[in-house]
């Protein structure tokens, strides 16, 4: 059997795939965080809870209404996006004039509440969500067997990231968004409804998190706590990438996922902390982050 540095090729490729899957979620979530932060100057701690809400929405749509995965993939982001819009309108919009730390603290409280309610209703243990029929089974790539669903997650998240990038960098709406990031007062003076833009942005970020949640449901168990531990890792990803660029956030997400996968092969004890270690090194060498603009 082929080995690299004493590790069987199979194991190496397997962990690389796991890393790529984790990286897909890091990329989607850090993208959402970066989009929200770019315009609202709010670090959305509830991002993990919104990801969990997406997964639960998929589960409940299936159990309650018999709607399958493909409906959930569309409906869950819409529902969670609407929820996000309400939260932004009622609460976050009143905090913009204050220190950005208050936004973080508010969304932290929101995350605690949402998770607490779901733990109360559904218990802390995970519930399975089966892989949709169309995506079951594996393909033989010659050097390894790839579960189709895992391949689908990587492709779907890449497409989602590219679509968001396209909307923000290449469309009129995106141009308004970027302009409002630079100078909200001026953009408002041109007759553009900036408060509405802010609401839409937060809803979009929440919807992205929910989309990631639906993608994650068949891979990980659906549980109330699935989001928070993940979001702390994503914070580290965001610190490494810097929040200045969208593609930067996506790229960093994939890279760190792969780095984590490789660590699992060569030094399994450190796989939980490798992203934090990379964060510490980046802070020492380049405090603004790899793609960061501000010092």
């Amino acid at each position: 059997m082929t080995t690299i540095l004493g590790v069987p090729l199979q194991a190496l490729l397997g962990q690389l795939l796991v890393g790529l899957i984790n990286g897909s979620f890091y990329a989607l979530l850090s993208l959402g965080l970066a989009v929200i932060f770019g315009l609202l100057r709010v670090i959305n701690f509830a991002h993990g809870a919104q990801y969990m809400l997406g997964a639960f929405a998929a589960l409940l749509l299936l159990k309650g209404l018999g709607l399958n995965y493909w409906f959930a993939l569309v409906l869950a982001p819409v529902l969670v996006g609407l929820f996000g819009a309400v939260i932004e309108r009622l609460f976050l919009s009143r905090l913009y004039k204050l220190d950005p730390l208050y936004g973080l603290l508010f969304t932290f409280g929101l995350a605690l509440t949402i998770e607490g309610v779901f733990r109360w209703l559904y218990g802390s243990s995970g519930q399975p969500y089966s892989v949709p029929e169309l995506l079951r089974g594996t393909v033989n790539l010659g050097f390894m067997f790839l579960p189709i669903y895992r391949g689908w997650v990587v492709i779907a998240s890449l497409v989602a990231c590219l679509v968001v990038w396209f909307v923000i960098e290449r469309t009129k709406l995106g141009a308004y968004l970027r302009a409002a990031t630079e100078n909200p007062v001026l953009v408002q003076a041109f007759g553009i409804n900036v408060p509405l833009l802010l609401t839409l942005t937060y809803a979009l970020g929440a919807a992205l998190a929910a989309f990631a949640g639906v993608l994650a449901a068949p891979i990980y168990q659906v549980s109330p706590l699935m989001g928070t531990n993940l979001i702390i890792v994503v914070f580290a990803v965001v610190v490494v990438g810097g929040m200045g660029s969208i593609l930067g956030a996506v790229f960093t997400g994939y890279m760190l996922g792969i780095a984590e996968g490789l660590t699992k092969v060569f030094f399994p004890e450190a796989s939980n902390i490798v992203i934090f270690v990379i964060m510490a090194i980046v802070l020492l060498l380049r405090p603004a982050g790899l793609f960061g603009k501000e010092a």
Binding site: F91, R94, L95, Y102, L105, F106, F108, G109, L110, A111, L112, T113, I114, E115, G116, V117, R119, W120
Partner: peptide, 16 residues
């Protein structure tokens, strides 16, 4: 009843 629901709500009320 999980404590986190209450602490989370207190958090939000304090911030608002």
């Amino acid at each position: 009843f999980p404590v986190t629901v209450i602490t989370g709500l207190v958090f939000m009320v304090c911030v608002m």
